[in-house]
Design a protein around this nucleic acid. Structure first.
Lengths: 221, 221
DNA sequence: TAGATTGTTAATCGATTAACAATC
DNA sequence: TAGATTGTTAATCGATTAACAATC
Protein backbone atom coordinates (compact mmCIF):
# COMPACT_ATOMS: atom_id res chain seq x y z
CA UNK A 1 0.00 0.00 0.00
CA UNK A 2 2.99 2.22 -0.57
CA UNK A 3 2.29 5.58 -2.12
CA UNK A 4 5.45 6.34 -4.00
CA UNK A 5 4.80 7.75 -7.43
CA UNK A 6 5.26 5.23 -10.22
CA UNK A 7 8.35 5.99 -12.26
CA UNK A 8 8.64 5.75 -16.03
CA UNK A 9 11.28 3.08 -15.48
CA UNK A 10 8.82 1.00 -13.49
CA UNK A 11 6.10 1.35 -16.10
CA UNK A 12 8.56 0.26 -18.77
CA UNK A 13 9.28 -2.96 -16.91
CA UNK A 14 5.65 -3.93 -16.39
CA UNK A 15 5.16 -5.45 -19.85
CA UNK A 16 8.26 -7.58 -19.24
CA UNK A 17 6.87 -8.83 -15.96
CA UNK A 18 3.56 -9.52 -17.60
CA UNK A 19 5.13 -11.53 -20.39
CA UNK A 20 7.06 -13.74 -17.99
CA UNK A 21 4.04 -14.20 -15.73
CA UNK A 22 1.94 -15.35 -18.66
CA UNK A 23 4.53 -18.04 -19.32
CA UNK A 24 4.59 -19.11 -15.67
CA UNK A 25 0.80 -19.26 -15.54
CA UNK A 26 0.84 -21.33 -18.74
CA UNK A 27 3.15 -23.79 -16.99
CA UNK A 28 0.67 -23.93 -14.09
CA UNK A 29 3.09 -22.33 -11.67
CA UNK A 30 1.05 -21.00 -8.75
CA UNK A 31 3.56 -19.05 -6.68
CA UNK A 32 6.83 -17.31 -7.38
CA UNK A 33 9.50 -15.52 -5.37
CA UNK A 34 10.77 -12.11 -6.35
CA UNK A 35 14.15 -13.70 -6.84
CA UNK A 36 12.87 -16.29 -9.29
CA UNK A 37 10.71 -13.90 -11.29
CA UNK A 38 13.43 -11.25 -11.34
CA UNK A 39 15.95 -13.75 -12.70
CA UNK A 40 13.56 -14.78 -15.44
CA UNK A 41 12.92 -11.18 -16.45
CA UNK A 42 16.53 -10.14 -16.04
CA UNK A 43 16.19 -7.51 -13.32
CA UNK A 44 17.35 -7.23 -9.72
CA UNK A 45 14.94 -8.78 -7.21
CA UNK A 46 14.91 -5.66 -5.04
CA UNK A 47 13.93 -3.61 -8.07
CA UNK A 48 11.10 -6.02 -8.79
CA UNK A 49 9.81 -5.92 -5.19
CA UNK A 50 10.05 -2.13 -5.22
CA UNK A 51 8.11 -1.94 -8.49
CA UNK A 52 5.34 -4.17 -7.18
CA UNK A 53 5.25 -2.28 -3.93
CA UNK A 54 4.83 0.99 -5.83
CA UNK A 55 1.77 -0.49 -7.54
CA UNK A 56 0.33 -1.56 -4.20
CA UNK A 57 0.86 -5.21 -5.08
CA UNK A 58 1.87 -7.37 -2.11
CA UNK A 59 3.25 -10.84 -1.62
CA UNK A 60 3.54 -13.02 1.46
CA UNK A 61 6.68 -12.88 3.55
CA UNK A 62 8.47 -16.21 3.61
CA UNK A 63 6.36 -17.45 0.71
CA UNK A 64 6.42 -15.21 -2.33
CA UNK A 65 3.82 -13.88 -4.76
CA UNK A 66 0.72 -15.51 -6.18
CA UNK A 67 1.15 -15.72 -9.95
CA UNK A 68 -2.52 -15.27 -10.84
CA UNK A 69 -2.87 -12.30 -8.53
CA UNK A 70 0.27 -10.67 -9.96
CA UNK A 71 -0.96 -11.32 -13.45
CA UNK A 72 -4.33 -9.81 -12.71
CA UNK A 73 -3.03 -6.75 -10.91
CA UNK A 74 -0.30 -5.87 -13.40
CA UNK A 75 -2.78 -6.38 -16.21
CA UNK A 76 -5.17 -4.05 -14.50
CA UNK A 77 -2.53 -1.38 -13.94
CA UNK A 78 -1.54 -1.56 -17.60
CA UNK A 79 -5.15 -1.38 -18.67
CA UNK A 80 -5.04 -4.78 -20.34
CA UNK A 81 -8.57 -5.51 -19.20
CA UNK A 82 -9.76 -2.63 -21.28
CA UNK A 83 -9.80 -2.58 -25.05
CA UNK A 84 -7.86 0.34 -26.47
CA UNK A 85 -9.17 1.35 -29.85
CA UNK A 86 -6.49 2.59 -32.18
CA UNK A 87 -6.64 4.98 -35.15
CA UNK A 88 -3.78 4.97 -37.63
CA UNK A 89 -3.12 7.97 -39.85
CA UNK A 90 -1.14 7.21 -42.98
CA UNK A 91 -2.13 4.32 -45.24
CA UNK A 92 1.33 3.93 -46.74
CA UNK A 93 3.57 0.93 -46.25
CA UNK A 94 3.87 1.42 -42.55
CA UNK A 95 0.17 1.98 -42.01
CA UNK A 96 -0.60 -1.11 -44.05
CA UNK A 97 1.91 -3.16 -42.09
CA UNK A 98 0.28 -2.02 -38.87
CA UNK A 99 -3.26 -2.96 -39.86
CA UNK A 100 -2.04 -6.31 -41.10
CA UNK A 101 -0.12 -7.01 -37.91
CA UNK A 102 -2.18 -9.30 -35.65
CA UNK A 103 0.01 -8.66 -32.62
CA UNK A 104 -1.66 -5.37 -31.78
CA UNK A 105 -5.18 -6.78 -31.74
CA UNK A 106 -3.97 -9.80 -29.80
CA UNK A 107 -2.61 -7.58 -27.10
CA UNK A 108 -5.76 -5.53 -26.82
CA UNK A 109 -5.07 -2.73 -29.30
CA UNK A 110 -7.33 -3.28 -32.29
CA UNK A 111 -6.92 -0.77 -35.10
CA UNK A 112 -10.43 0.39 -35.85
CA UNK A 113 -9.80 3.02 -38.50
CA UNK A 114 -7.20 4.11 -40.99
CA UNK A 115 -6.91 7.64 -42.37
CA UNK A 116 -5.12 9.06 -45.37
CA UNK A 117 -5.23 12.28 -47.37
CA UNK A 118 -4.86 10.50 -50.69
CA UNK A 119 -8.29 10.40 -52.37
CA UNK A 120 -7.28 7.36 -54.39
CA UNK A 121 -6.83 5.37 -51.18
CA UNK A 122 -9.96 6.62 -49.45
CA UNK A 123 -12.70 4.01 -49.54
CA UNK A 124 -10.37 1.09 -50.11
CA UNK A 125 -9.98 -1.67 -47.55
CA UNK A 126 -6.64 -2.58 -46.04
CA UNK A 127 -6.25 -5.37 -43.54
CA UNK A 128 -10.01 -5.40 -43.19
CA UNK A 129 -10.15 -1.70 -42.30
CA UNK A 130 -11.75 0.98 -44.45
CA UNK A 131 -9.53 3.95 -45.30
CA UNK A 132 -11.17 7.28 -44.51
CA UNK A 133 -10.13 10.80 -45.43
CA UNK A 134 -8.22 12.68 -42.75
CA UNK A 135 -10.75 15.47 -42.99
CA UNK A 136 -13.19 13.21 -41.19
CA UNK A 137 -10.90 12.40 -38.29
CA UNK A 138 -12.72 14.36 -35.64
CA UNK A 139 -16.14 12.77 -36.21
CA UNK A 140 -14.93 9.22 -36.77
CA UNK A 141 -12.53 9.15 -33.86
CA UNK A 142 -15.37 10.11 -31.57
CA UNK A 143 -17.90 7.82 -33.24
CA UNK A 144 -15.64 4.78 -33.11
CA UNK A 145 -14.48 5.38 -29.55
CA UNK A 146 -10.82 5.68 -30.51
CA UNK A 147 -8.51 6.38 -27.58
CA UNK A 148 -5.02 5.93 -29.02
CA UNK A 149 -3.63 7.50 -32.19
CA UNK A 150 -0.75 6.34 -34.33
CA UNK A 151 1.00 8.77 -36.68
CA UNK A 152 2.43 6.86 -39.62
CA UNK A 153 2.56 9.63 -42.19
CA UNK A 154 5.46 11.45 -43.80
CA UNK A 155 7.34 13.64 -41.33
CA UNK A 156 5.98 16.90 -42.79
CA UNK A 157 2.40 15.99 -41.94
CA UNK A 158 3.09 14.83 -38.38
CA UNK A 159 2.42 18.09 -36.56
CA UNK A 160 -0.88 18.80 -38.27
CA UNK A 161 -2.03 15.22 -37.64
CA UNK A 162 -1.03 15.52 -34.01
CA UNK A 163 -3.04 18.74 -33.82
CA UNK A 164 -6.03 16.98 -35.33
CA UNK A 165 -5.76 14.17 -32.80
CA UNK A 166 -5.55 16.66 -29.95
CA UNK A 167 -8.57 18.44 -31.39
CA UNK A 168 -10.36 15.09 -31.39
CA UNK A 169 -9.57 14.70 -27.67
CA UNK A 170 -7.02 11.91 -28.11
CA UNK A 171 -4.41 12.08 -25.33
CA UNK A 172 -2.17 9.13 -26.27
CA UNK A 173 -0.09 9.21 -29.43
CA UNK A 174 2.47 6.88 -30.93
CA UNK A 175 4.60 8.72 -33.50
CA UNK A 176 6.69 7.01 -36.16
CA UNK A 177 8.03 10.23 -37.64
CA UNK A 178 11.29 11.75 -36.52
CA UNK A 179 10.72 15.40 -35.63
CA UNK A 180 9.59 16.66 -32.24
CA UNK A 181 5.85 17.25 -31.87
CA UNK A 182 4.39 20.16 -29.96
CA UNK A 183 1.40 18.96 -27.96
CA UNK A 184 -0.35 20.14 -24.80
CA UNK A 185 0.99 18.82 -21.49
CA UNK A 186 -1.83 16.39 -20.93
CA UNK A 187 -1.07 14.56 -24.19
CA UNK A 188 1.47 11.74 -23.98
CA UNK A 189 3.55 11.05 -27.08
CA UNK A 190 5.81 8.07 -27.49
CA UNK A 191 8.15 7.99 -30.45
CA UNK A 192 9.34 5.01 -32.45
CA UNK A 193 12.10 6.00 -34.84
CA UNK A 194 13.67 3.08 -36.64
CA UNK A 195 16.49 5.03 -38.22
CA UNK A 196 17.47 6.39 -34.81
CA UNK A 197 17.50 2.87 -33.40
CA UNK A 198 19.81 1.82 -36.20
CA UNK A 199 22.00 4.85 -35.64
CA UNK A 200 22.41 3.93 -32.00
CA UNK A 201 23.33 0.38 -33.00
CA UNK A 202 25.86 1.61 -35.50
CA UNK A 203 27.36 3.89 -32.87
CA UNK A 204 28.12 0.93 -30.63
CA UNK A 205 29.39 -1.16 -33.50
CA UNK A 206 31.64 1.61 -34.72
CA UNK A 207 32.98 2.23 -31.25
CA UNK A 208 33.59 -1.44 -30.51
CA UNK A 209 35.26 -2.24 -33.80
CA UNK A 210 37.24 1.01 -33.98
CA UNK A 211 41.00 0.89 -33.87
CA UNK A 212 41.16 2.16 -30.32
CA UNK A 213 42.33 5.59 -29.22
CA UNK A 214 42.94 8.71 -31.24
CA UNK A 215 40.79 11.45 -32.58
CA UNK A 216 39.48 9.15 -35.26
CA UNK A 217 40.20 8.90 -38.93
CA UNK A 218 38.43 11.59 -40.95
CA UNK A 219 36.40 10.00 -43.70
CA UNK A 220 35.50 11.55 -47.02
CA UNK A 221 33.16 14.49 -46.56
CA UNK B 1 39.32 16.11 -25.30
CA UNK B 2 37.60 14.83 -22.19
CA UNK B 3 37.76 11.10 -21.67
CA UNK B 4 34.58 10.33 -19.81
CA UNK B 5 32.85 7.24 -21.14
CA UNK B 6 29.88 7.98 -23.38
CA UNK B 7 26.62 7.09 -21.68
CA UNK B 8 23.67 5.44 -23.34
CA UNK B 9 21.68 8.57 -22.55
CA UNK B 10 24.17 10.68 -24.49
CA UNK B 11 24.09 8.35 -27.48
CA UNK B 12 20.33 8.49 -27.49
CA UNK B 13 20.38 12.27 -27.76
CA UNK B 14 22.85 12.41 -30.64
CA UNK B 15 20.26 11.76 -33.36
CA UNK B 16 18.17 14.59 -31.94
CA UNK B 17 21.12 16.95 -32.06
CA UNK B 18 21.88 15.84 -35.58
CA UNK B 19 18.33 16.46 -36.75
CA UNK B 20 18.26 19.97 -35.38
CA UNK B 21 21.71 20.75 -36.76
CA UNK B 22 20.62 19.66 -40.22
CA UNK B 23 17.80 22.20 -40.02
CA UNK B 24 20.13 24.95 -38.86
CA UNK B 25 22.61 24.18 -41.63
CA UNK B 26 19.74 24.26 -44.11
CA UNK B 27 18.89 27.74 -42.89
CA UNK B 28 22.52 28.72 -43.43
CA UNK B 29 23.15 29.27 -39.75
CA UNK B 30 26.90 29.16 -39.21
CA UNK B 31 27.31 29.24 -35.45
CA UNK B 32 25.15 28.29 -32.51
CA UNK B 33 25.35 28.54 -28.74
CA UNK B 34 24.71 25.56 -26.50
CA UNK B 35 21.78 27.47 -25.09
CA UNK B 36 20.17 28.00 -28.47
CA UNK B 37 20.72 24.47 -29.73
CA UNK B 38 19.62 22.96 -26.44
CA UNK B 39 16.39 24.94 -26.49
CA UNK B 40 15.66 23.76 -30.04
CA UNK B 41 16.26 20.14 -29.12
CA UNK B 42 14.52 20.41 -25.78
CA UNK B 43 17.38 19.58 -23.42
CA UNK B 44 19.31 21.49 -20.79
CA UNK B 45 22.26 23.44 -22.16
CA UNK B 46 24.66 22.01 -19.58
CA UNK B 47 23.62 18.53 -20.64
CA UNK B 48 24.30 19.41 -24.25
CA UNK B 49 27.74 20.84 -23.48
CA UNK B 50 28.54 17.81 -21.39
CA UNK B 51 27.48 15.47 -24.19
CA UNK B 52 29.62 17.26 -26.76
CA UNK B 53 32.52 17.37 -24.35
CA UNK B 54 32.26 13.62 -23.84
CA UNK B 55 32.61 13.16 -27.60
CA UNK B 56 35.66 15.39 -27.66
CA UNK B 57 33.75 18.06 -29.57
CA UNK B 58 34.69 21.59 -28.58
CA UNK B 59 33.29 25.05 -29.14
CA UNK B 60 34.75 28.47 -28.64
CA UNK B 61 34.30 30.25 -25.32
CA UNK B 62 32.38 33.44 -25.72
CA UNK B 63 31.28 32.44 -29.21
CA UNK B 64 29.60 29.06 -29.41
CA UNK B 65 29.86 26.07 -31.72
CA UNK B 66 30.39 25.90 -35.46
CA UNK B 67 27.33 24.26 -36.99
CA UNK B 68 29.15 22.49 -39.82
CA UNK B 69 31.81 21.18 -37.50
CA UNK B 70 29.20 19.88 -35.05
CA UNK B 71 27.29 18.30 -37.87
CA UNK B 72 30.37 16.59 -39.21
CA UNK B 73 31.63 15.35 -35.86
CA UNK B 74 28.32 14.04 -34.57
CA UNK B 75 27.73 12.38 -37.93
CA UNK B 76 31.10 10.74 -37.67
CA UNK B 77 30.51 9.51 -34.13
CA UNK B 78 27.19 8.04 -35.19
CA UNK B 79 28.78 6.42 -38.21
CA UNK B 80 26.63 8.37 -40.63
CA UNK B 81 29.54 8.66 -43.03
CA UNK B 82 29.57 4.94 -43.36
CA UNK B 83 26.88 2.95 -45.12
CA UNK B 84 25.36 0.32 -42.88
CA UNK B 85 24.04 -2.59 -44.86
CA UNK B 86 20.94 -4.12 -43.38
CA UNK B 87 19.52 -7.63 -43.63
CA UNK B 88 15.87 -8.18 -42.71
CA UNK B 89 14.62 -11.62 -41.73
CA UNK B 90 10.89 -12.11 -42.15
CA UNK B 91 9.17 -11.14 -45.38
CA UNK B 92 5.75 -10.72 -43.80
CA UNK B 93 3.90 -7.44 -43.50
CA UNK B 94 6.49 -5.87 -41.30
CA UNK B 95 9.41 -6.99 -43.44
CA UNK B 96 7.67 -5.68 -46.52
CA UNK B 97 6.94 -2.38 -44.86
CA UNK B 98 10.60 -2.08 -43.94
CA UNK B 99 11.92 -2.70 -47.46
CA UNK B 100 9.39 -0.27 -48.86
CA UNK B 101 10.28 2.42 -46.34
CA UNK B 102 12.64 4.93 -47.95
CA UNK B 103 13.57 6.51 -44.64
CA UNK B 104 16.09 3.82 -43.79
CA UNK B 105 18.03 4.13 -47.03
CA UNK B 106 17.87 7.90 -46.81
CA UNK B 107 19.50 7.82 -43.43
CA UNK B 108 22.26 5.48 -44.53
CA UNK B 109 20.76 2.09 -43.75
CA UNK B 110 19.90 0.41 -47.06
CA UNK B 111 18.27 -2.98 -46.76
CA UNK B 112 20.28 -5.20 -49.07
CA UNK B 113 18.63 -8.56 -48.48
CA UNK B 114 15.42 -10.07 -47.19
CA UNK B 115 15.15 -13.60 -45.81
CA UNK B 116 12.20 -15.86 -45.18
CA UNK B 117 11.64 -19.55 -44.53
CA UNK B 118 8.57 -19.70 -46.73
CA UNK B 119 9.53 -21.36 -50.04
CA UNK B 120 6.66 -19.62 -51.81
CA UNK B 121 8.18 -16.23 -51.00
CA UNK B 122 11.76 -17.17 -51.82
CA UNK B 123 12.80 -15.75 -55.18
CA UNK B 124 10.15 -13.08 -55.27
CA UNK B 125 11.04 -9.41 -55.21
CA UNK B 126 9.74 -7.04 -52.57
CA UNK B 127 10.58 -3.36 -52.56
CA UNK B 128 13.25 -4.09 -55.12
CA UNK B 129 14.92 -6.72 -52.90
CA UNK B 130 15.10 -10.42 -53.69
CA UNK B 131 13.81 -12.73 -50.96
CA UNK B 132 16.26 -15.48 -50.05
CA UNK B 133 15.82 -18.56 -47.93
CA UNK B 134 16.99 -18.25 -44.32
CA UNK B 135 19.18 -21.32 -44.84
CA UNK B 136 21.47 -19.15 -46.94
CA UNK B 137 21.87 -16.41 -44.35
CA UNK B 138 25.46 -17.13 -43.41
CA UNK B 139 26.85 -16.98 -46.97
CA UNK B 140 24.77 -14.06 -48.20
CA UNK B 141 25.32 -11.89 -45.15
CA UNK B 142 29.03 -12.23 -45.63
CA UNK B 143 28.87 -11.85 -49.42
CA UNK B 144 26.74 -8.70 -49.29
CA UNK B 145 28.71 -7.08 -46.48
CA UNK B 146 25.73 -6.89 -44.14
CA UNK B 147 26.53 -5.37 -40.76
CA UNK B 148 23.12 -4.87 -39.13
CA UNK B 149 20.34 -7.44 -38.79
CA UNK B 150 16.63 -6.85 -38.30
CA UNK B 151 14.45 -9.61 -36.88
CA UNK B 152 10.92 -9.18 -38.20
CA UNK B 153 9.68 -12.75 -37.87
CA UNK B 154 7.12 -14.34 -35.59
CA UNK B 155 8.25 -14.39 -31.96
CA UNK B 156 8.90 -18.14 -31.94
CA UNK B 157 11.59 -17.87 -34.61
CA UNK B 158 13.41 -14.93 -33.05
CA UNK B 159 15.97 -16.82 -31.01
CA UNK B 160 17.04 -19.10 -33.83
CA UNK B 161 17.33 -16.16 -36.20
CA UNK B 162 19.39 -14.29 -33.64
CA UNK B 163 21.63 -17.33 -33.34
CA UNK B 164 22.02 -17.43 -37.10
CA UNK B 165 22.97 -13.74 -37.19
CA UNK B 166 25.52 -14.28 -34.43
CA UNK B 167 26.88 -17.24 -36.36
CA UNK B 168 27.18 -14.95 -39.39
CA UNK B 169 29.24 -12.52 -37.28
CA UNK B 170 26.59 -9.81 -37.09
CA UNK B 171 26.95 -7.86 -33.83
CA UNK B 172 24.08 -5.34 -34.15
CA UNK B 173 20.49 -6.52 -34.08
CA UNK B 174 17.16 -4.74 -34.12
CA UNK B 175 14.41 -7.02 -32.82
CA UNK B 176 10.71 -6.46 -33.43
CA UNK B 177 9.58 -9.53 -31.49
CA UNK B 178 8.65 -9.36 -27.84
CA UNK B 179 10.58 -12.05 -25.95
CA UNK B 180 14.10 -11.62 -24.56
CA UNK B 181 16.90 -12.86 -26.78
CA UNK B 182 19.98 -14.63 -25.47
CA UNK B 183 23.04 -13.37 -27.32
CA UNK B 184 26.76 -13.16 -26.50
CA UNK B 185 27.95 -10.05 -24.68
CA UNK B 186 29.56 -8.48 -27.71
CA UNK B 187 26.25 -8.46 -29.60
CA UNK B 188 24.05 -5.39 -29.12
CA UNK B 189 20.30 -5.90 -29.41
CA UNK B 190 17.77 -3.11 -29.49
CA UNK B 191 14.11 -3.97 -29.22
CA UNK B 192 11.16 -2.25 -30.82
CA UNK B 193 7.92 -3.57 -29.39
CA UNK B 194 4.88 -1.71 -30.60
CA UNK B 195 2.40 -3.40 -28.29
CA UNK B 196 4.57 -2.51 -25.30
CA UNK B 197 4.69 1.11 -26.44
CA UNK B 198 0.92 1.12 -26.61
CA UNK B 199 0.67 -0.53 -23.21
CA UNK B 200 2.81 2.20 -21.70
CA UNK B 201 0.60 4.84 -23.33
CA UNK B 202 -2.52 3.18 -22.01
CA UNK B 203 -1.01 3.05 -18.54
CA UNK B 204 -0.64 6.82 -18.48
CA UNK B 205 -4.06 7.37 -19.98
CA UNK B 206 -5.68 5.05 -17.48
CA UNK B 207 -3.89 6.68 -14.57
CA UNK B 208 -4.67 10.21 -15.69
CA UNK B 209 -8.33 9.58 -16.42
CA UNK B 210 -8.92 7.33 -13.40
CA UNK B 211 -11.27 8.46 -10.68
CA UNK B 212 -8.45 9.28 -8.31
CA UNK B 213 -7.46 7.35 -5.21
CA UNK B 214 -8.53 3.95 -3.97
CA UNK B 215 -7.40 0.44 -4.66
CA UNK B 216 -9.12 0.53 -8.00
CA UNK B 217 -12.30 -1.06 -9.24
CA UNK B 218 -11.89 -4.76 -10.03
CA UNK B 219 -13.02 -5.41 -13.57
CA UNK B 220 -14.48 -8.63 -14.91
CA UNK B 221 -11.84 -11.39 -14.97
C1' DT C 1 38.05 46.07 -21.56
C1' DA C 2 33.09 44.35 -21.27
C1' DG C 3 30.14 40.80 -22.70
C1' DA C 4 29.31 36.22 -23.91
C1' DT C 5 29.72 31.46 -23.69
C1' DT C 6 32.35 27.36 -23.00
C1' DG C 7 34.03 23.42 -20.20
C1' DT C 8 33.92 21.50 -15.79
C1' DT C 9 33.22 21.36 -10.74
C1' DA C 10 30.14 20.56 -7.33
C1' DA C 11 25.31 20.05 -5.95
C1' DT C 12 21.20 17.75 -6.81
C1' DC C 13 18.15 14.45 -8.15
C1' DG C 14 16.31 9.97 -9.05
C1' DA C 15 16.82 5.21 -9.73
C1' DT C 16 19.06 0.89 -8.38
C1' DT C 17 20.44 -2.31 -5.15
C1' DA C 18 22.47 -4.34 -0.84
C1' DA C 19 21.07 -5.34 3.47
C1' DC C 20 18.04 -6.45 7.05
C1' DA C 21 14.11 -6.22 10.30
C1' DA C 22 9.48 -7.89 9.92
C1' DT C 23 6.88 -11.82 9.56
C1' DC C 24 4.80 -15.74 7.19
C1' DT D 1 11.02 -22.87 16.23
C1' DA D 2 13.95 -22.64 11.84
C1' DG D 3 13.91 -21.24 7.19
C1' DA D 4 12.40 -18.33 3.69
C1' DT D 5 11.11 -14.21 1.62
C1' DT D 6 8.87 -9.81 1.72
C1' DG D 7 8.81 -4.73 2.21
C1' DT D 8 11.62 -0.92 3.17
C1' DT D 9 15.69 1.57 4.90
C1' DA D 10 19.93 3.21 3.83
C1' DA D 11 23.89 3.10 0.69
C1' DT D 12 25.33 3.49 -3.86
C1' DC D 13 25.46 4.73 -8.37
C1' DG D 14 24.86 7.48 -12.42
C1' DA D 15 22.84 11.15 -14.79
C1' DT D 16 21.25 15.96 -14.77
C1' DT D 17 21.89 20.60 -13.92
C1' DA D 18 23.20 24.98 -11.50
C1' DA D 19 26.98 27.68 -11.04
C1' DC D 20 31.20 29.67 -12.17
C1' DA D 21 36.16 30.13 -13.41
C1' DA D 22 38.40 30.15 -17.82
C1' DT D 23 38.79 32.51 -21.89
C1' DC D 24 37.40 33.97 -26.48
Amino acid sequence: MADQPISEATVGRLPDYLRTLVELAGDDVAGVSSKHLATQVGVNSATLRRDLSALGITGTRGVGYDVKYLLFEISRVLGVHQEWRVAVVGAGNLGQALVNYDGLTQRGFPIVVLFDNDESKVGSIMGGIVVHHVDHMAELVSELGVNVGIIATAAEAAQSIADAFVEAKIVSLLDFTAGPLAVPDHVVVRRVDLATELQILSFYQQRDTAVSGGTGVPLGA
